[in-house]
Computed example of a mutant assay.
Amino acid sequence: MAMRSVVTRAGVNRLAGPARLFSDGRGKILSEEERAAENVYIQKMEREKLEKLKHKAEKEKAEKEKEAAEKKPGEK
């Protein structure tokens, strides 16, 4: 079973593109600075995504309130 997963992983890496080589003998792929920059970028993207979702929710809420306000005078 373990041998099968190793073969599967090797096959997936081959299909995904060239493997990223290690930058040093300790197995680190990214330097500390690169990792920090990547984390900042990820946080920025997540923050922007949340802001878009918040804006969308506010817009939908305003539309629902507008529709509700338009229906009330017509019902009386």
Score class of each variant (00 low, 15 high):
residue 1 M to T: 05
residue 3 M to P: 04
residue 3 M to T: 04
residue 3 M to V: 02
residue 3 M to A: 09
residue 4 R to V: 00
residue 4 R to A: 02
residue 5 S to D: 14
residue 5 S to V: 09
residue 5 S to R: 15
residue 6 V to D: 14
residue 6 V to Y: 12
residue 7 V to W: 12
residue 7 V to R: 15
residue 7 V to G: 04
residue 7 V to Q: 15
residue 9 R to A: 03
residue 10 A to E: 08
residue 11 G to H: 14
residue 11 G to N: 13
residue 12 V to P: 02
residue 13 N to S: 02
residue 13 N to K: 11
residue 15 L to K: 13
residue 15 L to C: 08
residue 17 G to Q: 01
residue 18 P to S: 02
residue 19 A to C: 05
residue 19 A to V: 01
residue 19 A to T: 03
residue 20 R to N: 05
residue 21 L to E: 14
residue 21 L to F: 03
residue 21 L to H: 15
residue 23 S to G: 09
residue 24 D to I: 00
residue 25 G to Y: 01
residue 25 G to S: 06
residue 26 R to H: 07
residue 27 G to R: 11
residue 27 G to Y: 01
residue 29 I to C: 02
residue 29 I to F: 02
residue 29 I to T: 10
residue 30 L to C: 01
residue 32 E to P: 12
residue 33 E to G: 01
residue 35 R to V: 00
residue 36 A to Q: 13
residue 38 E to V: 02
residue 39 N to L: 11
residue 40 V to H: 14
residue 43 Q to L: 03
residue 44 K to I: 02
residue 45 M to R: 15
residue 45 M to T: 04
residue 46 E to S: 06
residue 46 E to C: 04
residue 47 R to E: 11
residue 47 R to V: 01
residue 48 E to A: 12
residue 49 K to E: 12
residue 50 L to H: 06
residue 52 K to H: 09
residue 52 K to V: 07
residue 53 L to K: 13
residue 55 H to M: 08
residue 55 H to E: 13
residue 55 H to W: 07
residue 56 K to G: 04
residue 58 E to D: 12
residue 59 K to E: 14
residue 59 K to I: 00
residue 59 K to N: 09
residue 60 E to A: 01
residue 61 K to S: 04
residue 62 A to E: 15
residue 62 A to T: 07
residue 63 E to I: 03
residue 63 E to H: 11
residue 65 E to F: 06
residue 65 E to Y: 07
residue 65 E to L: 11
residue 66 K to T: 02
residue 66 K to I: 01
residue 66 K to D: 09
residue 66 K to Y: 04
residue 67 E to C: 05
residue 68 A to I: 03
residue 69 A to S: 13
residue 70 E to T: 00
residue 71 K to E: 14
residue 71 K to Q: 11
residue 72 K to N: 10
residue 73 P to N: 02
residue 73 P to E: 05
residue 74 G to I: 07
residue 75 E to L: 05
residue 75 E to T: 01
residue 75 E to A: 08
residue 76 K to C: 04
